[in-house]
Design a protein around this nucleic acid. Structure first.
Lengths: 124, 124
DNA sequence: ATAACATATGTACATATATTCATATAAGGT
DNA sequence: ACCTTATATGAATATATGTACATATGTTAT
Protein backbone atom coordinates (compact mmCIF):
# COMPACT_ATOMS: atom_id res chain seq x y z
CA UNK A 1 0.00 0.00 0.00
CA UNK A 2 2.09 2.91 -1.19
CA UNK A 3 0.92 6.36 -2.05
CA UNK A 4 2.90 9.10 -3.64
CA UNK A 5 2.28 12.16 -5.75
CA UNK A 6 0.64 10.06 -8.41
CA UNK A 7 -2.04 8.01 -6.74
CA UNK A 8 -2.87 10.67 -4.24
CA UNK A 9 -6.32 11.08 -2.81
CA UNK A 10 -7.55 14.59 -2.31
CA UNK A 11 -10.33 14.85 0.16
CA UNK A 12 -11.29 18.42 -0.51
CA UNK A 13 -10.24 19.11 -4.07
CA UNK A 14 -11.82 22.56 -4.08
CA UNK A 15 -10.02 23.55 -0.91
CA UNK A 16 -6.70 22.46 -2.36
CA UNK A 17 -7.38 24.41 -5.51
CA UNK A 18 -8.29 27.56 -3.61
CA UNK A 19 -5.22 27.21 -1.42
CA UNK A 20 -3.11 26.87 -4.51
CA UNK A 21 -4.49 30.10 -5.88
CA UNK A 22 -4.05 31.81 -2.53
CA UNK A 23 -0.43 30.68 -2.44
CA UNK A 24 0.26 32.34 -5.77
CA UNK A 25 0.11 35.69 -4.01
CA UNK A 26 3.09 34.57 -1.99
CA UNK A 27 6.00 34.19 -4.32
CA UNK A 28 9.64 34.00 -3.29
CA UNK A 29 8.82 31.33 -0.75
CA UNK A 30 12.40 30.18 -0.95
CA UNK A 31 13.81 33.62 -0.11
CA UNK A 32 11.44 34.04 2.79
CA UNK A 33 12.31 30.68 4.26
CA UNK A 34 15.97 31.61 3.86
CA UNK A 35 15.32 34.72 5.90
CA UNK A 36 13.74 32.68 8.67
CA UNK A 37 16.56 30.18 8.44
CA UNK A 38 18.99 32.98 9.16
CA UNK A 39 17.15 33.65 12.42
CA UNK A 40 16.72 29.98 13.23
CA UNK A 41 20.04 29.65 15.01
CA UNK A 42 20.24 30.86 18.63
CA UNK A 43 23.68 32.32 18.06
CA UNK A 44 22.68 34.31 15.01
CA UNK A 45 19.49 35.43 16.72
CA UNK A 46 21.52 36.81 19.61
CA UNK A 47 23.84 38.54 17.19
CA UNK A 48 20.92 40.15 15.44
CA UNK A 49 19.36 41.30 18.68
CA UNK A 50 22.66 42.67 19.91
CA UNK A 51 23.07 44.58 16.67
CA UNK A 52 19.69 46.17 17.25
CA UNK A 53 21.22 48.11 20.11
CA UNK A 54 24.34 49.26 18.24
CA UNK A 55 26.81 48.36 15.57
CA UNK A 56 29.46 45.88 16.61
CA UNK A 57 32.57 44.27 15.17
CA UNK A 58 33.09 40.55 14.65
CA UNK A 59 35.56 40.37 17.47
CA UNK A 60 33.09 41.82 19.97
CA UNK A 61 30.28 39.62 18.74
CA UNK A 62 32.48 36.56 19.19
CA UNK A 63 33.27 37.67 22.73
CA UNK A 64 29.61 38.33 23.43
CA UNK A 65 28.56 34.86 22.37
CA UNK A 66 31.65 33.12 23.70
CA UNK A 67 32.54 31.55 20.38
CA UNK A 68 35.62 31.72 18.20
CA UNK A 69 36.01 34.66 15.87
CA UNK A 70 36.03 32.27 12.98
CA UNK A 71 32.68 30.88 14.00
CA UNK A 72 31.32 34.38 14.43
CA UNK A 73 32.64 35.36 11.02
CA UNK A 74 30.93 32.38 9.44
CA UNK A 75 27.68 33.42 11.05
CA UNK A 76 28.09 36.97 9.81
CA UNK A 77 28.63 35.63 6.34
CA UNK A 78 25.27 33.92 6.52
CA UNK A 79 23.55 36.99 7.91
CA UNK A 80 25.15 39.08 5.16
CA UNK A 81 24.26 36.68 2.38
CA UNK A 82 20.63 36.70 3.51
CA UNK A 83 20.53 40.48 3.69
CA UNK A 84 20.03 40.86 7.40
CA UNK A 85 23.15 42.86 8.13
CA UNK A 86 25.61 45.13 6.39
CA UNK A 87 28.95 46.49 7.48
CA UNK A 88 31.26 49.44 7.24
CA UNK A 89 35.00 49.28 7.53
CA UNK A 90 36.99 51.50 9.85
CA UNK A 91 40.61 50.59 9.43
CA UNK A 92 40.98 46.90 10.10
CA UNK A 93 37.70 46.68 11.91
CA UNK A 94 34.42 45.80 10.25
CA UNK A 95 31.39 47.15 12.06
CA UNK A 96 28.19 45.28 11.43
CA UNK A 97 24.68 46.64 11.77
CA UNK A 98 21.17 45.57 10.78
CA UNK A 99 20.12 46.49 7.26
CA UNK A 100 16.72 47.75 8.35
CA UNK A 101 14.22 47.31 11.12
CA UNK A 102 12.24 44.49 9.58
CA UNK A 103 14.67 42.23 11.29
CA UNK A 104 13.77 43.51 14.73
CA UNK A 105 10.10 43.52 13.81
CA UNK A 106 10.44 39.79 13.25
CA UNK A 107 12.15 39.35 16.59
CA UNK A 108 9.46 41.36 18.35
CA UNK A 109 6.60 39.37 16.87
CA UNK A 110 8.43 36.20 17.83
CA UNK A 111 8.86 37.49 21.35
CA UNK A 112 5.18 38.27 21.66
CA UNK A 113 4.24 34.89 20.30
CA UNK A 114 6.52 32.96 22.60
CA UNK A 115 5.33 34.94 25.59
CA UNK A 116 1.68 34.34 24.84
CA UNK A 117 2.25 30.65 24.25
CA UNK A 118 4.03 30.47 27.54
CA UNK A 119 1.83 32.47 29.86
CA UNK A 120 -1.75 32.14 28.94
CA UNK A 121 -3.99 33.09 26.09
CA UNK A 122 -5.87 29.93 26.99
CA UNK A 123 -7.02 28.44 23.69
CA UNK A 124 -9.42 31.16 22.59
CA UNK B 1 48.16 30.58 17.29
CA UNK B 2 44.87 29.42 18.68
CA UNK B 3 42.22 31.45 20.33
CA UNK B 4 39.19 30.24 22.13
CA UNK B 5 36.88 31.45 24.83
CA UNK B 6 39.77 31.71 27.24
CA UNK B 7 42.42 33.83 25.59
CA UNK B 8 39.98 36.02 23.80
CA UNK B 9 40.67 39.62 22.95
CA UNK B 10 37.88 42.08 23.30
CA UNK B 11 38.31 45.22 21.34
CA UNK B 12 35.46 47.17 22.80
CA UNK B 13 34.90 45.77 26.26
CA UNK B 14 32.30 48.37 27.14
CA UNK B 15 30.31 47.67 23.99
CA UNK B 16 30.27 43.98 24.72
CA UNK B 17 29.15 44.61 28.26
CA UNK B 18 26.33 46.89 27.15
CA UNK B 19 25.25 44.40 24.52
CA UNK B 20 25.20 41.71 27.17
CA UNK B 21 22.91 43.81 29.32
CA UNK B 22 20.73 44.64 26.33
CA UNK B 23 20.43 40.95 25.53
CA UNK B 24 19.08 40.22 29.00
CA UNK B 25 15.83 41.85 27.96
CA UNK B 26 15.52 39.14 25.35
CA UNK B 27 15.13 35.87 27.16
CA UNK B 28 13.84 32.66 25.61
CA UNK B 29 16.26 33.02 22.74
CA UNK B 30 16.03 29.29 22.24
CA UNK B 31 12.24 29.32 21.90
CA UNK B 32 12.33 32.21 19.49
CA UNK B 33 14.91 30.56 17.29
CA UNK B 34 12.76 27.43 17.36
CA UNK B 35 9.86 29.48 16.08
CA UNK B 36 11.96 30.79 13.19
CA UNK B 37 13.25 27.29 12.56
CA UNK B 38 9.68 26.15 12.09
CA UNK B 39 9.31 28.70 9.29
CA UNK B 40 12.74 28.01 7.84
CA UNK B 41 11.58 25.20 5.59
CA UNK B 42 9.90 26.13 2.28
CA UNK B 43 7.37 23.34 2.68
CA UNK B 44 6.32 24.34 6.15
CA UNK B 45 6.22 27.98 5.13
CA UNK B 46 3.82 27.15 2.34
CA UNK B 47 1.69 25.13 4.72
CA UNK B 48 1.53 28.03 7.13
CA UNK B 49 0.59 30.48 4.40
CA UNK B 50 -2.05 28.13 3.06
CA UNK B 51 -3.50 27.77 6.54
CA UNK B 52 -3.82 31.53 6.73
CA UNK B 53 -6.54 31.33 4.14
CA UNK B 54 -8.48 28.49 5.77
CA UNK B 55 -8.20 25.38 7.87
CA UNK B 56 -7.02 22.30 6.01
CA UNK B 57 -6.47 18.61 6.68
CA UNK B 58 -3.19 16.77 6.37
CA UNK B 59 -4.32 14.99 3.28
CA UNK B 60 -5.09 18.23 1.46
CA UNK B 61 -1.86 19.83 2.59
CA UNK B 62 0.07 16.87 1.26
CA UNK B 63 -1.71 17.20 -2.06
CA UNK B 64 -1.09 20.93 -2.14
CA UNK B 65 2.63 20.52 -1.66
CA UNK B 66 2.93 17.37 -3.70
CA UNK B 67 4.51 15.37 -0.90
CA UNK B 68 3.55 12.15 0.85
CA UNK B 69 1.02 12.33 3.64
CA UNK B 70 3.63 10.97 5.96
CA UNK B 71 5.98 13.80 5.15
CA UNK B 72 3.17 16.31 5.61
CA UNK B 73 2.26 14.77 8.93
CA UNK B 74 5.86 15.04 10.12
CA UNK B 75 5.85 18.71 9.17
CA UNK B 76 2.62 19.27 11.04
CA UNK B 77 4.14 17.65 14.06
CA UNK B 78 6.92 20.19 13.98
CA UNK B 79 4.52 23.07 13.48
CA UNK B 80 2.40 21.77 16.35
CA UNK B 81 5.32 21.24 18.70
CA UNK B 82 6.46 24.80 18.09
CA UNK B 83 3.00 26.20 18.66
CA UNK B 84 2.31 27.51 15.20
CA UNK B 85 -0.77 25.45 14.49
CA UNK B 86 -3.52 23.64 16.30
CA UNK B 87 -6.13 21.23 15.07
CA UNK B 88 -9.65 20.06 15.58
CA UNK B 89 -10.90 16.62 14.79
CA UNK B 90 -13.98 15.98 12.72
CA UNK B 91 -14.43 12.27 12.45
CA UNK B 92 -11.26 10.81 11.09
CA UNK B 93 -10.10 14.07 9.68
CA UNK B 94 -7.86 16.49 11.54
CA UNK B 95 -8.26 20.07 10.43
CA UNK B 96 -5.28 22.28 11.10
CA UNK B 97 -5.28 26.03 11.49
CA UNK B 98 -2.90 28.71 12.70
CA UNK B 99 -2.88 29.28 16.45
CA UNK B 100 -2.95 33.05 16.08
CA UNK B 101 -2.02 35.75 13.61
CA UNK B 102 1.50 36.33 14.82
CA UNK B 103 2.48 33.65 12.40
CA UNK B 104 1.17 35.58 9.43
CA UNK B 105 2.62 38.80 10.81
CA UNK B 106 6.00 37.13 10.58
CA UNK B 107 5.33 36.05 7.03
CA UNK B 108 4.23 39.54 6.08
CA UNK B 109 7.30 41.22 7.51
CA UNK B 110 9.43 38.66 5.71
CA UNK B 111 7.61 39.38 2.49
CA UNK B 112 8.19 43.09 2.83
CA UNK B 113 11.83 42.55 3.63
CA UNK B 114 12.47 40.26 0.70
CA UNK B 115 10.68 42.59 -1.65
CA UNK B 116 12.66 45.62 -0.55
CA UNK B 117 15.93 43.75 -0.76
CA UNK B 118 15.01 42.70 -4.25
CA UNK B 119 13.68 45.85 -5.81
CA UNK B 120 15.46 48.85 -4.49
CA UNK B 121 15.75 50.68 -1.23
CA UNK B 122 19.25 51.55 -2.43
CA UNK B 123 21.48 51.47 0.66
CA UNK B 124 20.11 54.53 2.46
C1' DA C 1 -14.94 -7.77 15.39
C1' DT C 2 -13.14 -6.51 11.07
C1' DA C 3 -12.14 -3.52 7.44
C1' DA C 4 -11.08 0.90 5.55
C1' DC C 5 -9.39 5.36 6.09
C1' DA C 6 -6.82 9.56 8.10
C1' DT C 7 -3.13 10.54 10.56
C1' DA C 8 0.84 9.64 13.61
C1' DT C 9 5.21 7.71 14.73
C1' DG C 10 9.73 5.11 14.47
C1' DT C 11 13.73 4.07 11.93
C1' DA C 12 16.99 4.67 8.44
C1' DC C 13 19.37 7.34 5.25
C1' DA C 14 20.71 11.29 2.55
C1' DT C 15 21.61 16.03 2.87
C1' DA C 16 22.28 20.39 5.28
C1' DT C 17 24.35 23.02 8.91
C1' DA C 18 27.56 24.57 12.57
C1' DT C 19 31.93 24.40 14.42
C1' DT C 20 36.91 23.78 14.33
C1' DC C 21 41.39 24.22 12.46
C1' DA C 22 44.32 25.93 8.95
C1' DT C 23 45.16 29.29 5.77
C1' DA C 24 44.26 33.58 3.11
C1' DT C 25 43.32 38.48 2.60
C1' DA C 26 43.29 43.26 3.89
C1' DA C 27 44.71 47.20 6.64
C1' DG C 28 47.96 49.49 9.93
C1' DG C 29 52.09 50.09 12.28
C1' DT C 30 57.29 49.69 12.47
C1' DA D 1 59.65 45.52 3.45
C1' DC D 2 57.96 43.01 7.57
C1' DC D 3 54.96 41.93 11.37
C1' DT D 4 50.66 42.23 13.74
C1' DT D 5 45.73 42.60 13.86
C1' DA D 6 40.87 41.86 12.13
C1' DT D 7 38.30 39.29 9.35
C1' DA D 8 37.31 35.94 5.64
C1' DT D 9 37.43 31.54 3.57
C1' DG D 10 38.16 26.48 2.74
C1' DA D 11 38.09 21.80 4.22
C1' DA D 12 36.87 18.36 7.52
C1' DT D 13 33.91 16.57 10.86
C1' DA D 14 30.04 16.14 13.92
C1' DT D 15 25.32 17.01 14.42
C1' DA D 16 20.75 18.30 12.81
C1' DT D 17 17.09 17.97 9.55
C1' DG D 18 13.94 16.24 5.87
C1' DT D 19 12.05 12.49 3.49
C1' DA D 20 10.74 7.70 2.59
C1' DC D 21 9.08 3.46 4.14
C1' DA D 22 6.99 0.55 7.41
C1' DT D 23 4.01 0.28 11.07
C1' DA D 24 0.89 1.92 14.74
C1' DT D 25 -3.11 4.53 16.42
C1' DG D 26 -7.66 6.25 16.37
C1' DT D 27 -12.16 6.81 14.03
C1' DT D 28 -16.10 5.23 11.23
C1' DA D 29 -18.79 1.86 8.86
C1' DT D 30 -20.31 -2.85 8.15
Amino acid sequence: MKKDQCDRRIIHAAVVEEARIFLQDYSEIEEKSELFKALADPGRLQIVIALASREMCVCDLAALLGVSESAASHQMRILRSKNLVKNRRDGQVLYYRLVDDHVMQLVDVARLHVKEMKYGEADE
